Computed example of a mutant assay.
Amino acid sequence: MTFQQFVLIGVSAGMTISAQGQGAIPGFFEPSGLRAQPSTAGLLTVNNVPDIVGGSSGFMGWSHSAGGAVGVNAGVNLGFPVGNVDVAHVGISTYAETTGSSLVFGRNQEISTLLSGSLVGTVLGFLGVGSVGEAVDGVVADLVASGTGLQVLSDWNSTATVAAPVTAGQEWEVSFMMTKGASLLDITSVLGSGPTLTISGSGGAYTSTIDLLGLLDINLLNNSPQEVSFTFEVDSDSPNLEMEFDMSSLANIALLNAGADGDTAVMSFSDITLTEVTPIPEPSTAILGLLGLGLVARRRRA
């Protein structure tokens, strides 16, 4: 059974993939909302231990690993006898997530207020601001400007396992849309050959690794999606298909933006399609082909 046949039978009657492989695969990025993200909690934190999560939905299984987080408590010194008072916790953490129709490699910025109790009025008066939010913004801005030097290696790795049998000798074309984030810093600081995509079969049946950065036009200042397309050949039979996305880059506390909390995509991958370029003939088709050759040979002898 070919991949298209498997998808048509096992996923959805409304599937739009044809023999020519047109249309994105529905449900490829399920389970949606599956997210790996290490913690930035702590007075002064550099967390290099990756957070790893996994899940499955329908014919898909996903495993996400996101490593790299940096966090620090930002405070002000009110002098004797109060001393230093923490105003906010700020941090950047790496995350990998399947959401909607995309796989997203990104960073999360967290700015949380630590002020409470009777110190609030004292701290606000000392800083000359009227609200806790203004105090947090001011302290974070000072922290960023000071260049604390805290940096961490962001390491993303996500593997999709597709429960679709493939056969030795098949050649496949995979295509998808790849979108870089708004920060060129992230792209130009990517280490090694990342981002890469490794396609393999169960038990190492076959392996093909592609340098995706070489296929991406990083000179574009806009962040429009770019189509990536390439082919690979299956060396031996496998009950499934694995697609491993991998990327690394440096993150520094100076990347913090005091006015922007939440997620920022560094790289995203969407709208996966797979096309069987050289299908393996069914046994009946192969037999008919051999019979046809035999008839031609007999006519030539005659």
Rank of each mutant, 00 (worst) to 15 (best):
M1V: 15
F6K: 03
L8W: 09
V11I: 06
V11Y: 01
S18E: 09
P26S: 12
F29C: 09
P31E: 08
S39K: 00
L43G: 09
L44G: 08
V46Y: 02
N48A: 13
I52K: 00
G67L: 02
G75C: 05
F80A: 08
A88L: 01
H89S: 11
V90N: 10
E97I: 14
T98D: 06
G100D: 09
S101K: 04
N108W: 02
T113Y: 01
V123P: 00
V132Q: 11
V132G: 01
V136F: 08
V139F: 02
G149Q: 12
G149D: 11
N157S: 10
T159S: 12
W172I: 13
K180F: 03
G181Q: 02
T188R: 01
L191D: 07
P195M: 12
L197V: 14
T207C: 02
S208V: 14
N223A: 11
P225E: 05
Q226R: 04
S229F: 04
A254K: 08
L255T: 14
A265F: 07
M267D: 04
F269P: 06
D271R: 07
L274Y: 10
T275E: 04
T275I: 09
T275F: 05
E276S: 08
V277I: 15
T278H: 07
P279Y: 03
T285P: 06
L291A: 14
R298H: 12
